[in-house]
Design a protein around this nucleic acid. Structure first.
Lengths: 158, 158
DNA sequence: CGAATCTCAGGCGAACTGATATGC
DNA sequence: CGCATATCAGTTGGCCTGAGATTC
């Protein structure tokens, strides 16, 4: 009989194994696995705001900002004024950023390939669905960190 | 059609959601979620070596050592000479360590409960099994970190 | 007004590299 | 000898708190 603890440990082990494998696949490019996640999100949809990056990367506003500063220093991304919302910043990949991203994407192809071949196609779908359910039930309202109690239903919108 | 990237992002999101929820559940006890993992492993089997903790926690020797030093400073664990292997250290929970652990285990019960109720029992088993498969295929030989370059197409070495 | 987005200062624990000592 | 276990020094990047400015 599997317990919640078993599940937590399995999730932890799988995440870190994947994270390390990814990190290793990126080599000495000066881009970490976590930064690569941001690049991938931008490659998928350019010009989104930092806040959208925060939500899609399942991260934190301050953390994302710090990472973006590093990426900006390496000239991989740029942050422009948002067209309609003057509070927000529109984050885009630079030309160099896209090049580097595409190279790293290729370098890490083997990792994703291994992930897929470890499971049958329907198992992959199942795993993702179950992980999403876990994610939903664990979701906290990460916006107001001053809040004492969390809103039960802070959905994770893409 | 789910991709390896989708899977990676789902795994990442689920892990961090769980990690944050766990961290929050532990409150201001001065024990982090990662340290709690070590305490749980020791509660499960006391007197194991640091190396065993490294493997079971899916972590790193230096990292585990640093965490153990913190836990030792707080008098939650002790490290004694190993009975048969003089290289190794036998790590045990102190009385205080066990007390704190049991309190934190109770405090985090709601998180594990939520994990379980999010999924049907057979889904929990499935999730764990799929995560284990992911873990196996992502496993790297974490021993020799001196390797300079990772060969792109290295087979899975246990 | 409240809420959202971002900035800044600062701290901390975890993950890591690389070298070393010792015992199996 | 090779290998495993643990240690020590030091670095880095990520995550976080708490405060504040600006804009919606």
């Amino acid at each position: 009989m599997a317990s919640g603890h078993d599940m937590a440990m399995a999730l932890r082990a799988a995440y870190w194994a994947m994270h390390r494998r990814t990190e290793a696949s990126l080599g000495q490019a000066g881009v970490t696995a976590d930064q690569f996640v941001l690049l991938a999100l931008l490659a998928q949809q350019d010009g989104i705001t930092q806040q959208q990056l925060v939500r899609r990367a399942a991260s934190d506003a301050n953390t994302v900002r710090a990472m973006l500063l590093r990426l900006e220093r390496h000239d991989l991304i740029a942050r422009a004024a948002h067209p309609t919302d003057r509070r927000a910043r529109s984050v885009t990949l630079t030309g160099k950023g896209r090049e580097v991203y595409e190279r790293l994407w290729a370098d890490s192809e083997a990792v994703r390939e291994q992930l897929l071949t470890a499971l049958r196609p329907e198992e992959t779908d199942t795993l993702i669905e179950l992980l999403n359910r876990v994610c939903e039930v664990m979701a906290t309202s990460r916006a107001g960190s001053k809040r004492k109690s969390q809103r039960p239903m802070a959905a994770i919108q893409a």
